[in-house]
C-alpha cells in the first residue's frame, strides 16, 4: 500500500485534443520566453566577443577593452550610487508619509502621484534636467558648495557653469528611481501587522515611536531590496545621463565639474548611432558588462527580499 501503483494513471487521463493543444501552446510560450531571455547574454557574447578580444587597431582609441570599459563601469556605479544616496532617504520618508501619516483617503491618490513620476519617459526627464535642474544648481548651489566645501574631494575642482555634472545627473537619476523604492517600501510598511502597531500604541508610544518599534524593523528588508532594485535601474538608465552629463575619458571623483566619467549606457547611446566596424562590437561588449552588472544587483535585491521580512522577529 506504500507505493501507489496508480501513479501513472493521473498522467494517462485522456484529455481532448483542444485541451492538449491549448496546454502545449501555453507551454510553448513559456519555453519561448525562457529561451529568448536566456538568449540575451548569449547573443551579446557572440557579437561582443570580437569587441573584447578583436584587433585593437580596428577601433577608435587604442587602449585594450579593460582600459576602455573601466572608466565607464566606474561612471556607471558612481552615478547610480549617488542617485541611490539621494533617493533612498527621500523614498523612505515619502513611503512612510503615504503609508502612515497621510489621511487614508488621500493615501491612494498620493501613491498614484508617485507612480506617475515613474511613468514619465526618461528622455523627458533628461531634457527637463538639463534645462531646469542644471542651471538652477549651477547658479545657486554649485558655486557655494565649491567655495565652502572644496576641502572635501568630491566638491573640489572648477565648478561647472553649465551644470552638466555628475551631481546633476545623480539628482535626476534619483528622481527616476525614487518611485520604485517608494512603491516597494510603501508596500511593506502597509503590511506591518496591525497587532504590532497596536501593541506599541497601547504602551503609550507616540506615532514616531510606534513606527520605530513596529514598522521600520518589519519593513527594513523591503526598503533594502527596493533600494537595490532602484540601484539596478539607475545603473541601466541611459537617456537622462546621455543628455545631462558632459563626459570625459578617465576616472573623476569630483561631482561639480565638467569632467565626468561617462556611464556604459550613456556611452552606448552617444556612440552607437555613428559607430561602425569593430567599434560596434566593442559597444555591445560594454552592454554585456552592463547586463552582468545589473543582473548581479538584481539578484542581490531578490536575495534580500527573499530573506524575508524577518526584521519583525528581531
Amino acid at each position: 500500500m506504500s507505493q501507489p501503483v496508480a501513479q501513472e494513471k493521473i498522467n494517462k487521463a485522456p484529455t481532448s485534443v483542444p485541451d492538449r493543444l491549448f496546454s502545449s501552446l501555453s507551454r510553448a510560450s513559456a519555453v519561448t520566453i525562457l529561451l529568448v531571455l536566456s538568449g540575451v547574454a548569449f547573443f551579446l557574447t557572440i557579437v561582443g566577443w570580437s569587441g573584447m578580444f578583436g584587433d585593437i587597431e580596428g577601433m577608435s582609441g587604442s587602449d585594450n577593452f579593460l582600459e576602455y570599459v573601466g572608466p565607464l563601469v566606474f561612471g556607471t556605479v558612481y552615478s547610480a550610487t549617488l542617485a541611490l544616496l539621494i533617493a533612498t532617504p527621500l523614498a523612505f520618508a515619502v513611503a512612510l508619509f503615504i503609508s502612515h501619516y497621510a489621511p487614508r483617503r488621500l493615501a491612494q491618490t498620493l501613491g498614484y502621484v508617485v507612480d506617475l513620476l515613474a511613468a514619465i519617459p526618461s528622455v523627458v526627464f533628461g531634457i527637463w534636467g538639463i534645462t531646469v535642474v542644471a542651471p538652477l544648481m549651477s547658479k545657486n548651489v554649485y558655486p557655494w558648495a565649491n567655495d565652502n566645501l572644496s576641502f572635501i574631494p568630491f566638491f573640489s575642482g572648477t565648478a561647472s557653469t553649465s551644470g552638466r555634472t555628475m551631481l546633476t545627473a545623480g539628482m535626476v537619476l534619483a528622481m527616476m528611481i525614487l518611485p520604485i523604492i517608494t512603491a516597494i517600501s510603501r508596500e511593506v510598511f502597509l503590511q506591518t501587522p496591525r497587532l504590532h502597531e497596536e501593541a506599541s500604541l497601547a504602551l503609550g508610544a507616540t506615532k514616531w515611536e510606534m513606527i520605530r518599534q513596529a514598522v521600520v524593523p518589519y519593513g527594513r528588508s523591503g526598503v533594502i531590496s527596493g533600494a537595490m532594485l532602484g540601484l539596478g535601474r539607475a545603473l541601466g538608465e541611459t537617456m537622462a545621463v546621455a543628455i545631462i552629463l558632459s563626459p570625459s575619458d578617465g576616472y573623476f571623483w569630483s561631482i561639480l565639474t565638467n569632467q565626468n566619467s561617462n556611464t556604459i549606457a550613456s556611452n552606448i547611446a552617444l556612440k552607437f548611432p555613428e559607430a561602425y566596424g569593430l567599434d560596434v562590437n566593442r559597444l555591445i561588449a560594454t552592454g554585456l558588462v552592463l547586463f552582468l552588472l545589473s543582473f548581479g544587483v538584481n539578484m542581490l535585491a531578490r536575495r534580500v527580499a527573499n530573506s524575508g521580512f524577518s526584521g519583525a522577529a528581531g
Binding site: 501507489p4 501503483v5 496508480a6 501513479q7 494513471k9 493521473i10 487521463a13 485522456p14 484529455t15 481532448s16
Partner: peptide, 23 residues
C-alpha cells in the same frame, strides 16, 4: 498528483478506466 486505486462505477461503468475523459 492526486490519484486513486480501485474502482468507481457509474451505472456499471468504471469512471477511472484509462480511456475515460474526466470531463
Amino acid at each position: 498528483k492526486a490519484h486513486v486505486e480501485g474502482v468507481v462505477q457509474l451505472n456499471g461503468e468504471d469512471i477511472y478506466r484509462p480511456d475515460v475523459d474526466p470531463v
